[in-house]
């Protein structure tokens, strides 16, 4: 997994609440059996005027000029500024895959849906939670100044604006550690293999029916 330490990136606005994962990446693209290549279809129904199909050449499709990601000033954005309950709905990890594949490394929002929040950390994507009032101010600043960039420092849990204003954010210690060092979750868990086997032995004794084989 990619590490996340400090980054500075252009901010793009996603100015609506309750953005669901169907909106982030519509279902027809979930038929892929790969982990990459979802970027061109990120926010497909908002970004293009036609209905997207898997495997299509998106460079030929009609763009929605009103959608921020299609506007030159947000080209190359790597920080997405969003509203409350971002990533609600389906558990599809294709949503963080699409955001990451497009080029986003960080999302800033007042709140996230639980499964989406968790999925981000598995893909080197940092979901930062800031107070709703602060997010409101950031939206105003993004709209007011072209080229608006934020610096996100995971080690110090701090977001810095272009004029030097700093906002602290909370992140769970274990998630932070893994993301800072780009650690492989499975490898880490397998270091506890002896504890897992000991648990299985205890549980098998106590509740043998839980270990009946599916066959």
């Amino acid at each position: 997994m990619k590490k996340f330490t400090v980054m500075q990136g252009l901010v793009a606005p996603m100015d609506r609440a309750n953005v669901d994962t169907d909106l982030i990446i519509p279902k027809q693209f979930l038929k892929s059996i790969k982990r990459s290549g979802f970027g061109p279809n990120l926010f497909d129904e908002l970004r293009y005027l036609d209905e997207g199909q898997p495997g299509q050449d998106c460079s030929q499709r009609p763009l929605n000029p009103d959608f921020p990601l299609n506007q030159p000033r947000y080209r190359g954005a790597s920080v997405l500024l969003a509203r409350e309950n971002f990533g609600c709905g389906s558990s599809r990890e294709h949503a963080p895959w699409a955001l990451e594949d497009y080029g986003f490394r960080c999302i800033v929002a007042p709140s996230y849906a639980d499964i989406f929040y968790n999925n981000c950390f598995k893909n080197g994507l940092l979901p930062v939670v800031l107070d709703a009032q602060v997010v409101e101010e950031l939206f105003e600043q993004v709209y007011a100044s072209e080229g608006y960039a934020l610096t996100i420092d995971l080690e110090n849990q701090r977001v810095q604006t272009p004029d030097g204003e700093c906002y602290g954010f909370e992140v769970d210690a274990f998630r932070k550690h893994r993301l800072l060092h780009g650690l492989d979750d499975i490898g880490l868990t397998l270091e506890s293999a002896a504890a897992i086997r000991a648990y299985e032995e205890r549980a098998r004794e106590q509740s043998p029916w839980l270990f009946d084989a599916i066959r």
Partner: peptide, 21 residues
């Protein structure tokens, strides 16, 4: 019972466990 992402599907297959809070 709860939903998980694909990275966790792989994690459960490989370890029969999940890291949770």
């Amino acid at each position: 019972a709860h939903g998980i992402g694909t990275s966790e599907v792989e994690h459960v297959l490989a370890t029969q466990c999940l890291v949770q809070q």
